[in-house]
Design a protein around this nucleic acid. Structure first.
Lengths: 146, 146
DNA sequence: CGTGTAAGGAATTCTGACACG
DNA sequence: CGTGTAAGGAATTCTGACACG
């Protein structure tokens, strides 16, 4: 993975993204009054944006709203749903650490694509590669020395 | 991966997310007047939301705005930057197809985590597992029959 | 071409109160 | 407890025009 590609991945602004309350409501199906109430109770939080007086929410918070709603629909009380959602957040945080530490680059040539996932630990001299052929992803090992 | 987990992953509403122009501007560092002009030229597009008269942008479009800006900063004309950004979009689409087709589940136990990435094609009877130990991710193979 | 600004109107979000239960 | 609504004001976004270059 070259520097340019790495820079672009970093640039995916998911960490910088903020949402207005209306966008959160329409994306999640949770009403604006619910969102304001949940915030007042501390189950979710909004961002403080300098120069703005309106609420803004991070992507993580949108996910959390979504999760709370799932548990609410499932029959939990609001308190219980918020608690379950907290566990879900940990699940997704774990997933993210994997992609961040293991993704080393994607190459595309003539429609065929390869993702380098770095050292294949059972055979540390080889790299694990995910390879797309005919729109199906397969794994293979390569020896970076060759 | 059980059904509940699969349902939750589907629920990550990144496809449903829409942004106001102010949020796109603050996330990307591109001005509102630039965004409106780029849209008028067809380099980006906004969503039509029923009942709303204001612009809303998809996550994909936010990424595209980000990319166009990178190339503009790099010295491209707007036309050239838009063209380069189109290529980047294909890169990320490819990356997404890999995760969608290969992620089969995450298990967390006592801080240790394992992601099942499905069949390891060089040895089709085994599954490729990404394993987190002491906050480092490693690969290993398992035999699902055992 | 590509972006910024001032202007007046339209759409969105704000808070605090109150209703329902 | 948890959510909805009406109300008036505040913050945001709209379009079309014009400036600069």
């Amino acid at each position: 993975m070259n520097e340019e590609q790495r820079a672009l991945l970093k640039n995916v602004p998911i960490e910088n993204l903020i949402f207005g309350i209306g966008d959160v409501a329409s994306a999640t199906g949770v009403s604006q009054s619910q969102i304001r109430y949940w915030e007042s109770k501390g189950y979710i939080s909004s961002e403080v944006v300098k120069g703005s007086k309106n609420r803004k929410f991070s992507y993580k918070t949108v996910i959390k709203v979504q999760h709370i709603k799932v548990f609410l629909d499932d029959g939990y009380t609001l308190v219980g749903a918020a608690k379950q959602a907290q566990k879900r957040d940990e699940y997704f945080d774990t997933l993210r650490t994997f992609f961040e530490s293991r993704f080393e680059g994607l190459e595309i040539n003539d429609g065929e694509a390869e993702i380098d996932m770095g050292t294949f630990d059972p055979e540390p001299r080889k790299h694990l590669i995910a390879q797309r052929i005919d729109n199906k992803w397969q794994f293979k090992l390569i020896d970076p020395m060759n």
